[in-house]
Nucleic acid binder design. Structure first.
Lengths: 141, 141
DNA sequence: CCTTGCCCTGCAGTGGACTATAAGGTTTAA
DNA sequence: TTAAACCTTATAGTCCACTGCAGGGCAAGG
């Protein structure tokens, strides 16, 4: 029973104590026990759970989605297919965000290249495109 | 003088009336005149300005950045180089976001592929990677 | 004993771009 | 004339993942 207080787990997990209390409010991570004076006592299991949460976040899952993943991983009757589906949905989600950003980037790059970068703004083709009365020749616009 | 009320400009611009009032609070778009009863009267210029704002947004600029762009485009003494610099900074910014998302996507895709997608969660390699005690063989983790 | 550094709760604030609501005034068409 | 469809303001709420603060209590070292 190597119980830790909140500050220790926070340090080990690379988060703040407020974050741990926040996760607890969300139902993601709660210590099983408290000291008589009310201090949270976290176990090694809790560190693992926190690590799971942080890793999932780095993969792009929201805390709400992580809650679902945690429930699945606790539920012995759950199917691997459910986890795979969530993962694939997240891939699709991220892929769409990448596509949107690439569209923006192509538009911005084209505009940046069209501007020789000297002289008054009156001659700036970037502003000209943003102001144009007809549809500018920029994919995203 | 083809003055429009707020609802008309909102419809033409594809936004809600609340959005136009919000832009006004931010100092991005204010009608020059009001009716005696206080109704906003927008001109053709205001429609162009709104179009500039929406186009800039589609390119990834924040409303704050758009405020800068608008000021530059109003200021005859401003330099095209300033606009070009803002544009290039935004390209770099978006590029970084794309890279972050691609890292996530690679990790997620690898995990999704590692899962055959049937059986209980106990056999799910995705959850195994999130739970692993050693560093999982996933770039982003 | 006292100080320092933990910990507790509850509540408010952040950023960004809106969106909604309440409580009213105005304009337009039937 | 009256009802609908507009407009006004001010204020508050939304989402997300925290972060900060006030006003206390508790624990460990000297």
């Amino acid at each position: 029973m190597q119980a830790m207080t909140i500050g220790t787990l926070a340090k080990k997990g690379g988060v703040g104590t407020g974050t741990l209390r926040y996760y607890e409010r969300l139902g993601l991570l709660a210590p099983a026990t408290r000291s008589p004076s009310g201090y949270r006592f976290y176990q090694r299991e809790d560190f693992k759970r926190l690590r799971f949460i942080r890793r999932s976040q780095r993969l792009g899952f929201s805390l709400e989605e992580i809650g679902v993943l945690l429930k699945l991983s606790q539920n012995a009757g759950a199917q691997a297919a459910d986890v795979k589906r969530l993962t694939e949905e997240k891939v699709a989600d991220i892929d769409q965000r990448i596509k949107d950003l690439e569209l923006m980037k192509r538009g911005l790059s084209a505009l940046a290249q069209s501007c020789h970068g000297h002289g008054p703004v009156a001659d700036c083709p970037i502003l000209a495109a943003l102001n144009a009365d007809d549809e500018p020749a920029v994919e995203v616009l």
